[in-house]
Design a protein around this nucleic acid. Structure first.
Lengths: 169, 169
DNA sequence: CAGTTTAAGTCAGTGTTGTTGACACTCCAA
DNA sequence: TTGGAGTGTCAACAACACTGACTTAAACTG
């Protein structure tokens, strides 16, 4: 349809919104996300774990004492899917689940010592790549990167992201 | 370990490389990628297709006449995994496979009319979100976004990305 | 030309991750 | 105290990726 904006006045300024530019952005996301997950995936593959375990460990480490329901919203998966992952993590002694004191329906999740160590190992690997990319790109590019990613989120995810970002800063 | 660089001289300039900043970048990637795939996923769910079909259709549309092997490298999956997807796409009349003229071992893949229509539908949905994010963030942020993503790729993916980007510009 | 390599496709088996459906336990309010 | 809503668990199933072994056909090579 409109390969670029049809308005003559704003045509020049909006060249970064052409379909071609958007397509490049899409492909950049695809290839970059592969790189983003590659290093932790390699580590996890040696254990019996996958990416879902990584995500659970990451967010439990990030928000200690969080409930299952809270984690569910953060991860955007079904309760049952998360539960399978949690069960193995608890059985393997990486996560502990405690019945809530106020509300006994809730379970509060925390990383054990071993869980914290694995979390550290995984995030070290992921941060190393991110750090190299950030350093190569420079602070202005990093600011732009964050701005675009935040604009790309669904509003509920943006809220979760901001909540995590602003906690314990 | 080093929560920020320990060099006093460069300490200020490298604040964007603190572990905290890197963690935010990691979480931004996670949440943004969910948004990135959400719209096409909704469309695909109504058909019998998944994300794997979308990726295949995207790259066949992007590089018409590509071979199976080429697509394999682009997607980074195994032959068996891609084959399952291609088989259904061909059976459903979205993709056609033609024996190579030069090298008859190769199969050249192209989208049919119906395939092109589905590709258009899917990428329209994905582009709409990307366009909104780009517009909100502005051209400088978009440039930074692209720079960081490219730096985050593995070198082979970066090569594939650049090859696609520079073809038929 | 015989032997090797390459491209593609297939079959069988496995693992992770997602789904839905059914169910148990807890809390709270009518 | 009973019924509804909230929280978490278990079981079964589907999608999609993986490995490994194999076949077919064509191309290359000494």
């Amino acid at each position: 349809m409109d390969r670029r904006t049809s308005s003559p006045a704003s045509g020049e300024a909006l060249l970064f919104l052409t379909d071609e530019q958007l397509r490049q952005g899409i492909e950049a996301m695809f290839f970059a996300y592969r790189g983003f997950t590659a290093d932790p995936d390699r580590i996890l593959a040696e254990m019996a774990y996958g990416r879902a375990h990584h995500r659970a460990i990451h967010f439990i480490g990030r928000a200690p004492g969080t409930t299952v329901n809270n984690l569910l919203n953060l991860l955007g998966v079904t309760k049952q899917s998360l539960n399978r992952v949690l069960r193995t993590l608890i059985a393997d002694g990486l996560v502990e689940s405690k019945v809530g004191r106020m509300d006994k329906r809730e379970r509060h999740l925390n990383l054990t010592q071993a869980g914290q160590e694995l979390e550290q190992t995984l995030s070290d690997a992921q941060r190393a790549r991110m750090r190299a990319a950030f350093r190569d790109a420079g602070p202005d590019a990093v600011a732009g990167f964050r701005t675009v990613l935040e604009a790309m989120m669904d509003s509920e995810m943006r809220a979760s992201y901001a909540r995590l970002r602003d906690s314990t800063l």
